[in-house]
Write a protein that binds this DNA or RNA. Structure first.
Length: 223
DNA sequence: ACCCAGGGTCATA
DNA sequence: TATGACCATGGG
């Protein structure tokens, strides 16, 4: 079992996912903040509200009164914290000279910069790096931990950075070409999320799960 | 009525 | 460093 073989199995089963949903890199970044611990369907409503008010831009978001912004993003939950986080991010984004300037940064510098924003943690930063900036950064989320922990491929208590490096190093060997790896990372994370939604939450290794008959995870009884 | 969703921060020990 | 509290809406 390699990371690549799991990817191939997922891709064969679910096909291309065409992530991240969003018309622009900035929309992807806003979505990354809004989707923190929140169902994507709720995020769509919030983004639609921003679009309807023609305010899906960093300058408009920064200028808008907190209360008004909170009302727009209300469906996405945590609207008070997310109002603050969205503004923090947009302020930083504008200070750095927006997207064109940021696209010239190295992935490491860009990651550090994103993490310096209060409200942008590892997963949110990596969502942005991969899906808005096309960097070869592997996104680790709770689903990723759960799946690969059940497959017996990683320890349950592995740290975020450790886990991310593990995926990136292994897949870099399989796919040396950066552009191809970005494409694979893009699909891979999406497939992990889709797979997690597809199977039963409480007993993810049920008959609906294609891993059921094909991999050692079948033998794992609990988390 | 309960659990969860494409997390992160902050206070405490 | 490692837990726990907190944030809040809406779908299943």
């Amino acid at each position: 079992m390699s990371y690549l073989s799991v990817y191939q199995a997922l891709y064969a089963h679910y096909g291309s996912q065409h992530w991240w949903p969003g018309d622009s890199p900035f929309e992807v970044m806003v979505g990354a903040v809004l989707t923190q611990n929140t169902a994507w369907t709720q995020v769509e409503k919030a983004i639609d509200n921003l679009k309807a008010d023609d305010c899906l831009t960093p300058s408009c978001i920064v200028a808008m009164p907190d209360k008004q912004l909170a009302t727009l993003i209300r469906p996405a939950g945590y609207f008070n914290v997310k109002t603050r986080r969205l503004k923090n991010f947009c302020r930083w984004f504008l200070e750095q000279g927006s997207e064109t300037a940021l696209s010239k940064w190295s992935s490491d510098d860009l990651r550090q910069g994103l993490l310096s924003v209060n409200g942008v943690g590892p997963e949110t930063a990596d969502d942005m790096l991969l899906y808005a900036f096309d960097r070869p950064i592997f996104v680790i989320d709770a689903y990723t931990r759960r799946l690969f922990s059940r497959l017996g491929m990683v320890a349950a208590d592995e740290g975020y950075e450790q886990l991310r490096h593990s995926f990136e190093a292994s897949l870099k060997t399989d796919i040396p070409e950066t552009r191809q790896r970005v494409t694979l990372f893009n699909e891979y994370h999406a497939l992990i999320v889709i797979h997690a939604k597809d199977v039963c939450r409480k007993r993810p290794l049920c008959g609906q799960c294609f891993f059921n008959r094909q991999c050692p995870a079948n033998e794992i009884k609990n988390d």
